[in-house]
Design a protein around this nucleic acid. Structure first.
Lengths: 249, 249
DNA sequence: TCCTTCGTTTGATCTGCATCAAGGCAGACC
DNA sequence: GGTCTGCCTTGATGCAGATCAAACGAAGGA
């Protein structure tokens, strides 16, 4: 998720927000931020906990401070598809909608910064640039969703796995000190089953393809979750994406 | 695509827009509409024509007046995935982005109402409710994209076909005089190949599944494109969605 | 009129991934 | 220690949908 703060650069963190969240910290010391401060509150959740069930009333909107959450849809017979991955600074909830459309689950311990919906909406209508910021974020998410549609509809299992690893690797690389000279190293934040739900596969296929990428020397594994990518270009070759930009997430 | 005009009801059509388009006609006779009128212009395209190629410079945004257009992504080896279906009143283009991310193709003869991007963006920053309107539309599209991810990742070929037919049937029913007492009747606006690109299938599978639904009495076909649905509930049964609301498109 | 083209249907076969099944490994708890 | 539980791996088998191939019908053009 490329962070766009261009319109109000430089951005810095709120006093008591460990992570700046895009929807909130347009520019500290503005009136609207003060108002946001007045209506915000924090909530913590444990790994595995489902914060919101599809169909629940939603009386707040929120942004992720630390941890990872997922959005999933479930069919009557239990088939599940993950439709969103929420990383720190991502926004959940929809102004103008009363009922949640997806299950929201914490895959790691999670801290959310919440705003009661009513005051948030009032603030939104009185301070135009919040809507513009949200629009920009939503358009980014839409691009990511469409990239994901290509993956789900047309990529092979191996390409799906490579794509997911590349996304996680890239994100981790950008979070840490930039330009990792050598190997990219990261921990998978998802179980095999969650990866399967994300990719439209079964957990067995996920496991097999990860093993295959390991055997082919594309990645190295230490334990089940810790991944080393020595040659990022080789991994990108496996994704099926054209060499350059590609993923917007 | 549920049409939301609630915030400024009643909405009526612009003098020379045959179809009201959500982003534009908030309420006629407002200042911003007059300004929009000043920067808008129409363009027509023939069926099959590609209006915009992924990577092209985009110096305008637009909304569909009549006809149908598609957004597609293509992989290097030619695999294609449709990622959006643009119906009358839908919006194309992204304020704040210079380059198109997808191919945009007219599947029928098409009329677009265009706005040069620069003035549109200026107007957007001076008239807040345009951003709010666009946000609402974009959130709808995001919901649709996520519904589509479930389809692509987890539905069977038969369920995919039934879902697509149900969406088209429902849309047509809402465009025409509402509450069709008996059968729903419509023409497929897409070729088998386009349907395949939409659904993440091959055209042969699309053809076979349509034949199967016909044999099973779920739909009737007159010619290749004309579809009769006598029992909409029976069609919905085949989609795999839970009975009630479901699709947001 | 015939011929071509394009979209489509249908058949035969192949294959990638799902499914079913068994077992391994590490951490927690007794 | 032992055993339980959650997560993961690997093997054997089956099947939905892809692929390869042929042919049909309607529209259009010579």
């Amino acid at each position: 998720m490329a962070v766009h703060h261009d319109m109000h650069a430089p951005v810095h963190d709120c006093a008591d927000c460990p992570i700046r969240h895009r929807a909130v910290c347009a520019r500290c010391e503005t009136d609207e931020l003060i108002k946001l401060e007045q209506i915000k509150y924090y909530r913590s959740y444990q790994a595995g906990q489902t914060l919101i069930w599809s169909g629940d009333r939603m009386d707040f909107v929120a942004s992720v401070v630390t941890g990872i959450a997922t959005l999933t849809q479930t069919m009557e017979d239990g088939r599940r598809q993950m439709v969103g991955l929420l990383l720190p600074s991502d926004f959940v909830g929809r102004p103008g909608r009363a009922v949640a459309a997806y299950d929201v689950t914490a895959t790691t311990d999670l801290v959310m910064c919440c705003f009661r919906k009513k005051p948030f909406e009032e603030l939104m209508s009185s301070t135009p640039h919040i809507a513009q910021r949200l629009l920009e974020m939503t358009l980014d998410e839409l691009d990511a969703a469409r990239e994901w549609m290509l993956l789900l509809g047309r990529k092979t299992a191996r390409e799906k796995i490579a794509s997911l690893l590349a996304i996680i690797a890239r994100r981790d690389a950008s979070l840490k000190l930039k330009a990792p000279k050598g190997a990219i190293v990261f921990d998978l934040p998802l179980t095999r089953e969650e990866m399967a739900d994300y990719l439209g596969l079964t957990l067995e296929t996920v496991s097999r393809q990860i093993s295959a990428l390991r055997k082919d020397g594309i990645i190295e594994l230490e334990g089940k979750r810790h991944v080393v990518v020595r040659n990022f270009d080789a991994l990108m070759e496996e994704t099926g994406d054209d060499s350059d930009g590609g993923f917007l997430v």
